[in-house]
Design a protein around this nucleic acid. Sequence first.
DNA 1: GTGAAAGCGCTAACAC
DNA 2: GTGTTAGCGCTTTCAC
Lengths: 333, 333
Amino acid sequence: MAVTIKDIAEEADVSVTTVSRVLNDKPDVSPNTRKNVLEKINELGYKPNSIARGLALQKTNTLGLIIPDISNPFFPDIARGVEDMANQKGYSVIFCNTDNEQKKEKEAIDLMKEKQVDGILLSLSTTNEKELKNLRKLEYPIVQIDRKIPNINYPSITIDNVKSAYTATKYLIKNGHKKIAHITGDLETITGSQRLKGFKKAIFEKNLNLNKSYIKNGDYSKKSGYQNMLALLKSNNPPTAVFIANDLMAVGAYQAVFKLNLSIPKDISIIGHDDIDVTKLVNPTLTTMSQPKYQLGNEAVQLLINEIESNKLSNEEIILNTNLINRNSIRRL
Amino acid sequence: MAVTIKDIAEEADVSVTTVSRVLNDKPDVSPNTRKNVLEKINELGYKPNSIARGLALQKTNTLGLIIPDISNPFFPDIARGVEDMANQKGYSVIFCNTDNEQKKEKEAIDLMKEKQVDGILLSLSTTNEKELKNLRKLEYPIVQIDRKIPNINYPSITIDNVKSAYTATKYLIKNGHKKIAHITGDLETITGSQRLKGFKKAIFEKNLNLNKSYIKNGDYSKKSGYQNMLALLKSNNPPTAVFIANDLMAVGAYQAVFKLNLSIPKDISIIGHDDIDVTKLVNPTLTTMSQPKYQLGNEAVQLLINEIESNKLSNEEIILNTNLINRNSIRRL
DNA sequence: GTGAAAGCGCTAACAC
DNA sequence: GTGTTAGCGCTTTCAC
């Protein structure tokens, strides 16, 4: 058994109360006893048991992070941003993967509650607003990251997907493109439907005609990028540029272009979304909208800890900006 | 305050012991009371407080995962493997990033101890064997992942880096290459030095001459891959093939090749190591040695939980195999 | 400035 | 089959 506060008390010949006082930097302990206790703590290599402290204080200094999949290249940066800020503020983080499955999401939330985490960061599938509302009813501090469940005002940190898609599409237009296609994300997700909205907005604004066959439904997977791009290129009237709702699909699209022995951006211009690592590694490098992933995680934690420590639920909705990262996949017509 | 075991006891008109018994599926409780208690649990939506349970049982069912950096593409797959298996076995996982800094490694270990995790999975920098030995002295269950500190027999799960590098290099030789270079990993790490060893072994075995200038010291970063490849290509007597100690450097090397308007594999053949996602996304796709990353995490947890639940420290060293993934970056001479 | 004692929510001897 | 009680390691109220 490890050394406890009681051992220190005995060694230093004081009560456990006093030891607890020096541990927590409380006043009302004489410099002498403080010094003495500190010495014993060092000698015996005492480390406080945060489980016991958690039970006494009803506070664990632990945060829950619930995301779809840590091995999806979008999330590690968020996770890193979360852990860094949590650590800096004296919290640690337990994480869970849900694969966007409602059952796993519920289980993850239940787990976090059992573990008595002080607050939860989550990125839930759109359809699961029930769980979120339950949490809120229990006055559990939460922050939604990246995906915000629509029509309810709970704290969240996201990007403006409409604006981001609008910016991307307008950039294509600005470069002289008129025949512009869009490979959408999963339209069941809020990000997917909003990016489509932003795309349409730019097209309508410039009075370009919205060719129905230029909108291809993808699902954020590389494969769907490949297939949809193939379909686009093989049509009678292929577009000259395409906005693809995420980089992973864009990379799939690259392969479709190469498969047909066409070249980027000579035959087709492409702009992606997210700015994951590979965008810099593919050839030509991919022009894309950069999401502040690390910052998303970082600020989410700040928001959450504010809720926790102020002891009142917030409704703050932070919307971060994306940036157009100009690389080499767009040709000026 | 949430509903506790005591509330259930009162509602069901039994003692807390009895409630605890049904909660833990213990015998010695009549079907009737069991049913009754279960009902109340459901009604009140009771969830056990695992902090309190942890304190009573001296067991948290939580594992610590200490890695250099979750946003390094090598680790998310491991983390996913860890979380999946942990979850399946009824454990959750707290993670920390250390950036290979000894100070952070020590802090992370201390944190895990304070949080009373039942065991720790760690991937430490080579130089930090002190911390590891301390943990072992405390009889703390540990498993080293990916990196094994040399010369001490603590449980670990790794790949055979010598063999893997040897296989990669031999494959180059088998394809007719004689002028073969190696861009090393960080030689301070065990993986880096062992891969160099495997490279040399293959070269010597085939009586090829080991040109000193063909061995370039990298540090696993993309940039060092770029710079070293540039140097190699610009030399008087450039190699025809190069084994690069990880894929990230290989991708950097690709950029150096393109920069000089050369092509892969026509002008230079490349084999990488790790099989991270981008290998399939670059052009040409990169031939590489695949590490079973997910499996590494998965089996590490099994090993660790065995230690924890059998209550005795193991010395098991599991060595997983890597596989050569043949793609398009090697030319047959 | 210091200590005794109760309590956080749970489990496990032990008694009945 | 069931309940009483002590205890896990800590914080905090209250008394001195």
